[in-house]
């Protein structure tokens, strides 16, 4: 399913996010990159329904997300938050089960079907044997995977991930990115992920969106749009691009 942003305007204080048109193709990973304060997370939150844009809209498969009820939207769009702080130390399985909220009536509790969906999601991210562990006892990398599993249990067509690899060591960073890649390939999900690690974006993303000061500077497949001039324009720092055995590598 294709996700689309059209004529979007959102402002908060002195910050203004303004995007004319942006398309996220289905079964692809799109990496949204840019300096701090560029509006990456704000864009994601508008898509997730956490923030309400002043003008314009976000569409999935032609449907205006603003016109959908909460449950309908949650079945279409899933959001993996950045570094949430929780008060209660739920067991991993209980936490992943909250991803089923859009399928469970207000005065009900999860049924066997929901537990199955949660277990399947944990299996998919490779943490099936941790289901009874308290969430706070997990490592940072495991927590990211559990957060992703929770969103998988929600079964959305569009997956939004807000900096899922920040503070992770290289191994876990690669694992999380490989998982995100698999979601687009195996589950045909439309994946939109904000990132700081440009090398990860180049390796795992089908398309990149460069943002700066609330606007889109460039969007498209990394090979088509990425050059030293763009990096200079977006980040205000010199980053070189060199060829190493047929792969483009960034050097600073």
């Amino acid at each position: 399913m294709k996700a689309r942003v059209a004529g979007l305007v959102f402002s908060y204080g002195g910050f203004r996010l303004e995007i004319d048109e942006l398309v996220f193709p289905g079964s692809q990973v799109t990496a949204v990159v840019g300096p701090n304060g560029a509006g990456k997370s704000t864009l994601l939150k508008c898509l997730a329904g956490i923030l309400t844009p002043e003008r314009g809209g976000t569409f999935v498969d032609g449907r205006d997300l603003a016109r959908l009820g909460g449950r309908e939207r949650a079945r279409l769009v899933g959001y993996v938050p950045q570094e949430p702080t929780y008060m209660f130390n739920y067991a991993v399985l209980d936490f992943v089960l909250t991803g089923r909220a859009a399928f469970i009536p207000r005065f009900s509790s999860p049924a066997a079907l929901d537990v199955e969906a949660a277990r399947e999601a944990l299996q998919y991210v490779g943490l099936a044997d941790l289901e009874r562990r308290p969430f706070f006892e997990l490592s940072s990398g495991e927590r990211r995977l559990v957060l992703i599993a929770r969103t998988l249990a929600q079964r959305p067509s569009v997956l939004l991930l807000d900096e899922p690899t920040t503070f992770l060591d290289p191994r876990h960073e690669t694992e999380v990115m490989a998982l995100i890649r698999r979601l687009a390939v195996e589950r045909a999900a439309t994946v939109i992920v904000t990132l700081h690690a440009l090398d990860m974006a180049m390796k795992f993303a089908d398309a990149m969106v460069f943002m700066k000061a609330g606007a889109v500077v460039a969007a498209g497949p990394p090979d088509d749009i990425l050059d030293e001039a763009l990096l200079r324009a977006v980040y205000d720092v010199d980053i070189g691009i060199v060829d190493v055995a047929g792969r483009r590598v960034l050097v600073r």
Binding site: A74, P84, T98, A101
Partner: peptide
């Protein structure tokens, strides 16, 4: 009785407003 009926919903609400909203809760 009603609060006992809402017991699992409270798990979801306890994750915070933004997250509960993205999970489909009004």
């Amino acid at each position: 009785a009603a609060l006992i009926g809402l017991r699992w919903r409270l798990n979801v609400l306890s994750l915070g407003e933004d997250e509960a909203r993205t999970l489909g809760i009004d």
